[in-house]
């Protein structure tokens, strides 16, 4: 009574077995297929939405800056000194210097009529400070103004700094709102992922439950665990792939029929950077196949314990 034949992997046989199982258990297989399709459609819609939301939030946050205005008397040497000092501050990504002349030119471009009336240049030399992270904008502002924020101005970073732009409230609100949006999107994505895995796993478990007697018999005639498992894994792969294809067809048609005409008419929709359709297809096929193949293989564990 020694173990005779080793666990043999006969792909053609397993493929035939899984095809037979799907044909014979059409209803549970179709339920699993439909579940995968619907879940993947939801995921496929959700991924670009989350990305667009985060993209919008990020682009708003990227615009957060601290503006430092030099005093009237500041010479180019003073400006260079201030620039170096600002660059030396922590959490500063970059500092862009805009001279009085540049500022005037930019302003003139925006509103030529108003600036044509001016005889002299009222604009100061300006330093645009972009923080590495939008959250650092306010600490940077504090650092420049000085902790005490004394009225005589001597506590400031440099004696030639006149003022620092005061958007504290706006910046604060902006930061709060974008953080909230980002966290909400991440939470929703996590919930959706969990829900999809549970839903698909449960459907697979149901169809396995309907076949637990079959598994029992296989064990009794001496089938190894993997001999029983392979057809289920292959079946899961096929169901997952078909479900993904179904979801992609629906998404593709929707994109072509609804989204693309809208996007060309109304640039706002196209604005945020989202996942390309090809990568979305890859993500959906991969996740569909992996979740259902793994789901089938692992749900089977419970039934293999005879």
């Amino acid at each position: 009574m020694k173990p005779n034949v080793k666990a043999n992997f006969n792909f053609a046989f397993f493929l035939r077995e899984s095809m037979r199982a799907m044909r014979r258990n059409a209803a549970p297989s179709f339920a699993a297929l439909a579940t995968v399709t619907v879940t993947l459609i939801v995921v496929g819609v959700f991924i670009p939405i989350v990305q667009a939301t985060r993209g919008a939030a990020d682009s708003v946050r990227a615009r957060v800056e601290v503006e430092v205005y030099a005093k009237e008397r500041a010479t180019p040497a003073d400006d260079a000194r201030i620039l170096a000092e600002l660059k030396a501050l922590p959490n500063v990504q970059k500092v862009v210097f805009e001279s009085k002349a540049q500022a005037l030119a930019a302003a003139k471009k925006q509103d030529p009529a108003a600036y044509a009336l001016l005889s002299s240049n009222p604009l100061p030399d300006t330093f645009h400070i972009y923080p590495t992270n939008a959250n650092d904008a306010l600490p940077i502002r504090q650092a420049i103004l000085g902790v005490g924020n004394k009225s005589d101005g001597h506590a400031k970073l440099d004696r030639d700094i006149a003022t620092v732009s005061n958007h504290t409230d706006d910046t604060q609100k902006l930061l709060t709102v974008t953080r909230f949006v980002t966290i909400t999107a991440a939470l929703l994505a996590a919930l959706l992922t969990i829900a999809s895995v549970l839903l698909i796993g449960n459907t697979i478990r149901l169809s396995l439950f309907a076949r637990r007697r079959e598994i029992e018999v296989m064990k009794l005639v001496g089938a190894t665990d993997w001999f029983i498992r392979w057809p289920f894994v292959i079946e899961g792969t096929i169901v997952g792939a078909l479900g993904a294809v179904g979801a992609i067809v629906v998404l593709g048609v929707t994109k072509l029929a609804l989204l693309d005409p809208l996007a060309s008419n109304w640039t706002l929709i196209a604005a945020p950077r989202t996942i390309s359709f090809i990568s979305l297809v890859l993500v959906l096929v991969l996740s569909g196949v992996c979740v259902s193949a793994l789901g089938s293989g692992m749900s089977l564990r419970r039934f293999l314990r005879v």
């Binding site: 009574m1 020694k2 173990p3 005779n4 007697r213 029992e216 018999v217 064990k219 009794l220 005639v221 001496g222 089938a223 190894t224 665990d225 001999f227």
Partner: peptide
């Protein structure tokens, strides 16, 4: 599984 291949089993409810 390999051990079971040396034993034939028949049940009341056939288990086909």
């Amino acid at each position: 599984p390999f051990y079971r291949r040396n034993i034939g089993v028949v049940f009341q409810d056939f288990k086909l």
